[in-house]
Amino acid sequence: MKILIADDSRVMRQIVIRTLRQAGYDDHDIVEAEDGADALAKVGSEKPDLVLSDWNMPNMTGIECLEALRSSGSSVPFGFVTSEGSPEMREKAANAGALFLIAKPFTDDTFREHLDGVIA
């Protein structure tokens, strides 16, 4: 599988990659994007099987990226990894077509809980 990780923090991208590995999801191709606009472009060029995206990013936020993807006809599986896990954010994410929202801070257990069945 190819997984696109979108976060404006390089450190956080590394932590997400590390947590994926610790949760047992190794052996996957990882593509990184540094904001929503970059993620949108890379969904087009890299054709990932899953997008894990931060919410608050410069240029284009995660939710704007998801909305742009859905309105352009892309149905790529999309989940949030964000420091904002309030009920209103979760509702907004679900309404826009996100599969799940993982709140930071997370553990490998949290990852397994949400990604089991999503990542083959």
Partner: peptide, 12 residues
């Protein structure tokens, strides 16, 4: 990023 995670959870 630590401030972001702590702040996001305070906000919630």
């Amino acid at each position: 990023e630590i401030a972001n995670v702590v702040g996001g959870n305070v906000k919630a």
